[in-house]
Structure formats: C-alpha cells, structure tokens
Design a binder for these strands. Sequence first.
DNA 1: GTGCCTGCTCACGGG
DNA 2: GAGCAGGCAC
Length: 756
Amino acid sequence: MGDIKWDELLNREQLIGVTTTEGPVLILAGAGSGKTRVLTHRVAYLMQQKGVAPYNIMAITFTNKAAREMRERVLSIGGVGADAVWVMTFHATCVRILRRFGDRVGYDNDFTIYDTDDQKALMKQIIKKLNLDPKKYKEKFFLGKISSAKDELISYADYALRFGSDPTEQLVSRVYREYQTALSDNNAMDFDDLIFKTVELFKQEPEVLNHYQSRFKYVMVDEYQDTNTAQFEFVRLLAAAHHNICVVGDDDQSIYRFRGANIHNILNFEEHFENATVIRLEQNYRSTGMILDAANQVIKNNENRKDKTLWTDNPRGDKVRFRQFDNAYEEAEFIALDVKSKNRNRDAAFSESAVLYRTNAQSRILEEKFLNENIPYRIVGGVNFYQRKEIKDMLAYLKTVASGKDDLSVRRILNVPKRSIGNTSVEKIAAYGDANGLSFYEVLERAGEIQTLGRSAAKIKLFVDLISELRADAEDLTVPELIRDIMERTGYGRELEAEGTDEAMARIENIDELISKAVIYTEDHEEDEATLTGFLEEVALVADIDNVEENPDYVVLMTLHAAKGLEFKNVYMAGMEDGLFPSGMCVFGDDPEELCEERRLCYVGITRAREFLTMTSARSRMIRGELQYSAVSRFVKEIDTSLMDGDVYEPGAKKSQDMVIDRRGFGRDNAESHSRRKAAMTAPTIYEVQAKSIASSSGKEPLSYDVGDRVRHMKFGEGVVLSIEDGGRDYEVAVDFDGKVKRMFAGFAKLEKVST
DNA sequence: GTGCCTGCTCACGGG
DNA sequence: GAGCAGGCAC
C-alpha cells in the first residue's frame, strides 16, 4: 500500500494540504475543489508515510453522511487498520466520550438524547410549572435562547451573571436553570449538551483531556466554517497539546449562522493557532465554466470574504437557464417535464437530477407534479421519519423498557394506546414525584400508595406490569423482535388495524420500516453489541439527509441547506423570488449579515450543479394560505445576462420548446392520484426499497413448518414447535428448546425445519 | 376521560 | 395548509 503516487493523484495545493502534517493547517477549499479528497488522502498519508497509528487520528464532520463517505474512502485507500481511525460527527464523537466519562459531569453513562420535540415537550412542562403565560412565552423562545447560550458555552449560572439586570433575561436564566435541572433529573441531554458537556468534561478533568490529547495526535475538521464556539473549544482543547490540527472549510459556504456557527472561527484561524499554514484550493473540478462564473458573480457581492477566485479547466457548457412562471404549479410542472425530457434524452438520469428550494413547504406542489408525471422521486427532510407520532411512540416504549429514567417517554406512552389514564392522573403522579424526589416511573410503580389516584391506580398497575413483561421479553429478544412484541402486547398494532384508514395503514408501514431499520442495525452489529441502548443511540443521531441513497434512480427534492456537500449533474433551483429567496425576514430586516448568508446559500446551490443549472420563479405563490406576488430574486439578477438563457427582466419569459403546459392538468387530481399523494405524504420516504423487501420476507408468508415439527433457531438451537397462533400481521410461534419454551414471531425467528 | 369541533397560531434553515 | 389548545357534549 506504500506505493501511492501522491503527486499524480493530487494537484500542487492539494499535495501541500496532504503532506503538511505537522502544526496547524487551514485549507480554504472552494466548492468542488476536492477537499474530501485531500482529507482522505491526508489520513492515508499519515498512516503510510509517517507511520502514524490509525488509533491516533481523528476526523470530524457535521453529518453522518459525510462521516460515512469519508470513512469508506479512508478504508479503501488507507489499507489495513484504517478502521481504527475515528471518523465521526461532532455529536457522535462527543456521545462516545460521554458514554465513557459522563459520570464525571453528573450523568449516568447511559443517558438519553433529547431531540427537538422532546425539548419542546419538556419546555412546555416547565412553562406550566413556573406558571408562565404560555401565550406570552413560547417554548421556542426559551429553547432558542438556551441553545444559543449553550453554543456559546454559557451555563445557566453564567447566564444569570451576564444578563442579570434585564427582567426578560432574568426569566430566561430561571427557565434555563429549570430546564437543565429537568434534563439532568431525566438523565437526558439535548444536542447542544453533547458538545457543551464534553467541553466541560475536558475543562474539569485534566486527566480525561490528557487521555484524549495523547490519543488523538492528529485532528482534522471538515466544514470548519460551520463550527460554533462550543465546537471550536472542543477542537482547540483536543489539539492544545500537539497542535496538529487541520481544518477544511469555505467561508463562502457558511450557512448555519442561525444555528450558532461562528464564521470568525475560520476567518481568524491564523490568530487562534499560531504559525498556521494556509492553503487555498481554487481549482474547481465539478462544474462547467458557465455555472462556475455564475456562482462567482453572485458571491462576489458579499463583503468580508477570504480572498479567493475559483476557476476551472472544465468546458464552458450550457448557459444557466432562467424561467419565470405565473404560479408555483406551472413552475413545478415545468420542472417535472424537464426532468423527464432530460431523462429521456439521456442528458441526465433521474438519479442525476435534483430540485433545490429554500423552504420545505415548497416540496408539496413539486411532489404532486412528480406523482402526476410518474417520476420517481425522493423528498429529503420535511417531517423527519423519527418525528412521526407512531415512531416516537415506539421509541418511547423502547426507552422505557431500556431504563424508565426518562420521564418524558414514560408520560408519552402511559395512555397510548388509551388506557383511560387521563390528564388529571398524570398531573397527580408528576406532583407526587416532584414532592418526593421520585421519577415518574418510580411513582407509577408505587401508585397503590397514592390515595388520590383512586381507581386509576389499578389501571396504572396494569401498565407497570406490561412494562415488566416487556422487560422480561427484552432479555431474549432482538430489537426488531422486541418492537413487534410491543406492538402485540400493547395492542398498538391492533388499534391501528382496526382503524383501517389510509393514514393508519401508513403508520403501520412506518413502524414496519422502523423494524427494518432495527433489522439492519442487528445485522450490522455482532450479537453482543446489538443492544437496545445501542439502537436507540444510533437512532437519536440520524438526520434525514443521511438516508439519501445514491444508486437508485430517483430525483431528489430537498432544501438548499440539505444539499450542501452533494453534487448533481442537473440541478433546479426553484422559487427564485425576492421574499422567498432571499427570505422576506432578511430582506426587510436590518441585519445585512443575514442577506449575506442567504447569498452564500445561493452560492452553495449553484455550485451543486455539474452540467445543467435551471433557476425558476413564480410571479405568485400561496404562502400561509395567502397569495403573494413577488419579483425575481435579486440573486438571479446578479448573474450577468451573457451567462443566462432566459430573460430576467421581461415579463413572460420564453417557454422551453419541450414544455407543454396542460392547464387542465391542474385540476387533474382524480381520486386515484389523490390517494396516491396522500399515501406518499405519510408513507416512508427513506429506505423504501429495503423496507419493502424486508417487509415481504417478514410478512405473513405460509410457514414451512407445523406444530410438532423440529426446527432450528439461530440463537437457541433446535426445538419442537408447540403452537402456531395467528398474531395478526405475523404468526406467533411457541417453540420448546430443551424444556425452555420461547414465543417468537415467525418473520424474525427465521426458523428452519429440521425434521417432521 | 374521550372524542369532536373550532378557532387560533405558525411556517426558513437542522444536528 | 396543518397542528394544537380549548371548549363542549357524551
């Protein structure tokens, strides 16, 4: 493996980036300039040329997808041992560290992770508890304040000191304290805590910091322009001993200011780290000259940039197309038909096309048209799979089975499905817990002692018994088996089946998909490692973007934010209207930096395209149920007309020849397409292909064995089938393994007949 | 305690 | 357009 010809694989600057291994390095990498290439080769170079142990190398990314891609590439060029390199997201890295040392900052090492919905639910309780007017104070307000504080490493104690005089800020600091205490009581951390607590750990426990400093002698950070103060501090502490820190980023692609990203981290890198080497990657290998020029013309309107000019050797290519339509329906129809014709002409396969937009709300109409035209598509984002009610319910059951310490989960499922335990009882239980320092579940366990509960106590006992039974089952079941078990024992599945509506069926499909994910999880891990907590952790850290599969022939629809880091041969930027993109908030706001951020987002969008770029806008569009008329986005006008096909200023921009607008088409929403659309809205959008194949293999197929047959189970060995019951969606089989009777679902047990 | 209806609010982006 | 709190009847 030592025969890599580094100088043939890399251009001059890339080579410097790869081989400057010692000391701080800042790589300013323009869009499409091969930054992932540099990072992965750098890892390989460290191992092969410098003899650095893989164990000593860490590469941090923002998304799981980026981590996975980099990991794959490191494995393929890095050779033996490369799997010991830590290639992970910030969040996953911190979780890993906190699972080991979390007890030093006041958490059990099996803490749970709260997502946005959990945070909201918890905040709601706190607003109630503090008797605040929920009309006046929204959860989002406090959560936003708290999140920004945590991004800046401000604890609630610091917050009180810092903003003490202002009454509103005083209230925030009080809420912050309550919120943090509640999290800690629930043994839970939110996303921001993961970073915050790790930094706290490093600062409080020099021994721990030392351990990681001497382990990770070489630290690399991808998308550095998106780091916030907490992440910066994490990286700084890690690298403080050896200074071998290499960061890659592009200030022009910083689009996460709203999430606390601090652009000064990259702009001031040379001040933060002394004697830094700065490398500029300015050759773009991705886009045509035309597209790149357009991108440069837009971004040059921003001030305070690191000075750089992106260039390319690629052919000039086609002009950037611009089309304006009367409304969003025509816009969507044009895009759908164009995608189709590009696919037909072999210009771009479906999988090579992507539609990008500013807001998720825009996806609906596009989706409708794509369905009408029978174009395979996939929407990334929108309602996250893991935010769906039924998925959250199942996860809450799993969490409760796993620990019961998380009050939020227990409360969520106590009356789901309906057990006639209403709000009044819940309030009483919570009050009793608060008064006696017990967790919600602990109170449930001793419900009999609480007089005021009356007849609810008996119902609560049934619930506690149910959880105990599930816990007993969990001992022998794999995670997917456990989910099925929960569906059965709680009656959740039966209730949905009884409902029988399209929506209920879609919910069942979603749960099936969760089961398939669990199957994939168990298959990916050794038997001992495939634990329930492990599964819950993996699930807590996934984002929708992580699930875009590249191979299947689908058009991808997503927000511009989600598109960062991806590239497509053929890109549409829809909704290029002032007020939508750039968004109204920044057009009328007084913060010029916000407009700059929007412009960077536009730059990100343009540079996703390799060969074809089409921008579209609508003269009118429904926003919040109101018809809004907008002018063409200023960003479109920033592109020189010599690069454009289509007139930005003329009303009624010309229509493409392959474009046939069927006006009746707008009302063509017959019953069939309507139900299809509805199904598509609620149906799984992720892992669809795998889910289908697994679902059919785990579905109710005729069994190859019967009562009395001898069968083999992967884990338990051979046994005799005692009974087979119709468990609704699957058969429930009881098998006697040498006197130990196990009940299992046929679809997952995968029993093989040995003899009759 | 549950189910249904209504009216209100909210909508930028996401780990 | 959608989700949710609040009010009401049962």
